[in-house]
Write a protein that binds this DNA or RNA. Sequence first.
DNA 1: TCAAAATATGGAGACAGTCTCCACTTGTCA
DNA 2: TGACAAGTGGAGACTGTCTCCATATTTTGA
Lengths: 189, 189
Amino acid sequence: MTDAKPLRADARRNRDALIAKARELFASGCFNLRFDDFAKLAGVGTGTLYRHFPTREALAEAVYREELTAMCDRARELQATLPADEALESFLRGFVDHLHRHEGLARTLATLMATQSGALAEGAQALGQVINDLLAAAVRTGAIRDDVGAGAVMMTLHGICAAYDHPTYRTDADGVITLVLAGLRRATP
Amino acid sequence: MTDAKPLRADARRNRDALIAKARELFASGCFNLRFDDFAKLAGVGTGTLYRHFPTREALAEAVYREELTAMCDRARELQATLPADEALESFLRGFVDHLHRHEGLARTLATLMATQSGALAEGAQALGQVINDLLAAAVRTGAIRDDVGAGAVMMTLHGICAAYDHPTYRTDADGVITLVLAGLRRATP
DNA sequence: TCAAAATATGGAGACAGTCTCCACTTGTCA
DNA sequence: TGACAAGTGGAGACTGTCTCCATATTTTGA
């Protein structure tokens, strides 16, 4: 899982250049560039690009790895400082908010979640883990029901990510979170 | 929208052959066939295939058009015979059940919903319409909240469709529907 | 019934991306 | 500083998509 061999200096430089250029392009909404052209733009050869990132997804994951990590950290922080149900709500609302501002992240997450092929979905798994934890904590306090798993919540988030370019994105995404939260809330008997 | 010109006899024959073969392949889980090879399999030339179906999505939509129509009819039937909230629940549960048995449909719907480019998404729009109607009826009877639109529900369904090949698909999808229904239910004040 | 007009066919080949391969360059280590 | 390991880049093979048009089939209407 963790990088076994430290990269040679020049290799590291190239890798960083690739990620930097990709981040820049993603941020400007440019996602469908020819892979070979992208290599040229980043100032490296095609072979080098492919050696570092065998697929588009691998590149996207590298670009958003940090961002995703930050998101997971935030979840853990919320969990440590708020009551379980508030932490959950706060995280989900913040998630949508963040996605709304970062189309590239939404697009990437949609792809990563769809890719069930283990290795590449590492980032998505990390996200799944923190949601799992948030839910488990809220179940423990009795704030939410225990008969619906994190998988279901992830599925709704997948739907949210996949719709990143719909015109009514924000409203609908907020609606989904509202439904999920209200649906999770334990019905007072 | 509706077919303006009646196809010539041979053209109709070819079109039908293409749809029939595609349906057969989809049913056997074969989705990523080379488009040219597919033409050969159906016994027509590449040009003919492209004339009838300019894209994979166009073909997929044609294949599932009937199935989607049947689904919409079912919704209207439920709406005519059951109380609004039961109709909604019944439709959504049935939707997941159907998807679970027809991976091809799930895959197609996921694509169609993602494609926001008008024309191709016709099938998805029809689905959106019936859900809209089901929700509106339930809102009118006061059974469900009125501050979350059909777009949000569609988003969750998109998530369900997109995850058609996850190992825990069925459980999670059922969970999503549970959340959506419970979330929609008007909280008794 | 048949010729002309309209419509449709098919598959060769142009084209656009992807990805590999390996002779060469650069970095590291003793 | 030399030798070995690690990394590079880009030409070109490869794969799938899609167009084009000479040819074939169907329809029309006289």
